[in-house]
Nucleic acid binder design. Structure first.
Lengths: 159, 159
DNA sequence: GGCATATAGTTGACATGTAAAGTATTTACA
DNA sequence: TGTAAATACTTTACATGTCAACTATATGCC
């Protein structure tokens, strides 16, 4: 799948319809490339990117979170979170605890195994980030961030 | 799902572990935002982004393409292409033709309906690109493209 | 108290991305 | 010629993103 992307770039025949289109396709392609690397890294530890994300959120929070609160903080849409947590629970990486005060709420807590796994991934993840973007100068990274934020700015949350 | 992303950004507590990490998360978030808009636009025409992509490739080529050639030019991994083409075929937007010389090969041709649909989408797609990135100055778009290509450059096809 | 409404999650249906294995042809070569 | 290896796809299995609809519990208001 990786080889393909590049082939595609080479095969591209016509010029872009607009500079905006060029940039947005460029963005998507670049993003895909990065995500593929992370997907691979996580897969080596039997995790998907979404699963890793949930574990990192839970570790970052330091305490159990309601399941919908987790969905809010990820790309996952509400219905998808159920299965995601199911699989993490089955793998022993998180635990579900029903809230006694409000029995509708289900808290999700990271287990020691989950914590260990995400801790173990810290170094490789950081290393991968460096390896993917480390060849850009600090000023370039800064400019990139500025441009990306400028793109996102008018998009607002959900306009 | 859109509202969430921004909430997440606001809730972000800790600084980034590195400038590279910040940039790559920034990239992914931005990309998601853009893709969401396109997904919505295509959905209004009962298409998914992948389906639109296939139709555009076929129209661009101007002649039928072997099914794996299409997979090569999209993000779709080989096995996924089968179902994708199935659904386009069911919708009457493409047609499968077995190659008489090499009976292993299956050509996919866009139908008049498919051509019309993708033509009808040209304007809205271009408009959306402008609306999403039009607030960047030409020099900014150019710099963005340069940076994105610089990121992708060492990634090569499939290293 | 008791019903309308809101909130937290789950379920089901469908499209996709991905890997691994299987089928049908074709090609290469002993 | 006849068999092994390559090629073009398809099938299967599983995780996810997405929408619509459903269940359970809680709250508000009369």
């Amino acid at each position: 799948m990786l080889a393909k992307r590049l082939q595609h770039e080479l095969k591209k025949r016509r010029p872009f319809d607009s500079a905006e289109q060029e940039a947005s396709l460029n963005l998507v392609r670049t993003c895909d490339q990065l995500q593929i690397r992370f997907t691979r890294l996580f897969r080596e530890h039997s995790l998907t990117p979404s699963q890793y994300n949930v574990l990192r959120i839970l570790r970052g929070e330091g305490k159990p979170l309601p399941i919908l609160e987790i969905a809010d903080r990820t790309v996952t849409v509400v219905p998808g979170i159920t299965g995601l947590i199911d699989r993490l629970e089955q793998a022993g990486l998180v635990r579900r605890d029903r809230c006694p005060e409000d029995r509708r709420v289900i808290y999700v807590a990271i287990t020691p195994q989950g914590t260990k796994l995400v801790n173990d991934l810290d170094r490789p993840v950081l290393a991968l980030h460096k390896s993917l973007l480390g060849h850009l100068a600090p000023a370039e990274l800064k400019e990139l961030n500025r441009l990306l934020e400028k793109i996102r700015q008018p998009l607002g949350g959900d306009p």
